[in-house]
């Protein structure tokens, strides 16, 4: 069972790659600036963590993103 955030995140990945059905910690994040902006908004909406674009730009994988969220919420 995926969380609401995971479902929303997968939607972002599917903008440029419709074949993607699942995310792993190693899934690379290669978003254009519009999608990265969406990611910033998504993080704030789901976890109430205001996230700068410059921070989001540094996420190389879904694992990096998970670490960031964990750090901010614990």
């Amino acid at each position: 069972m995926k969380s609401e955030f995971e479902v929303a995140l997968l939607k972002l990945f599917r903008i440029n790659d419709k074949s993607m059905t699942e995310l792993t910690l190693n899934t690379p994040i290669r978003f254009d600036s519009l999608t990265l902006t969406e990611l910033c908004i998504l993080i704030e909406e789901h976890f109430d963590i205001p996230t700068e674009f410059a921070i989001a730009k540094k996420f190389k994988t879904v694992g990096d993103l998970n670490c960031y969220i964990l750090e901010k919420t614990t």
């Binding site: 205001p50 700068e52 674009f53 410059a54």
Partner: peptide
């Protein structure tokens, strides 16, 4: 765009 977003928000 990213820099604008960060400064403004």
């Amino acid at each position: 765009g990213g820099a604008v977003y960060d400064w403004v928000t």
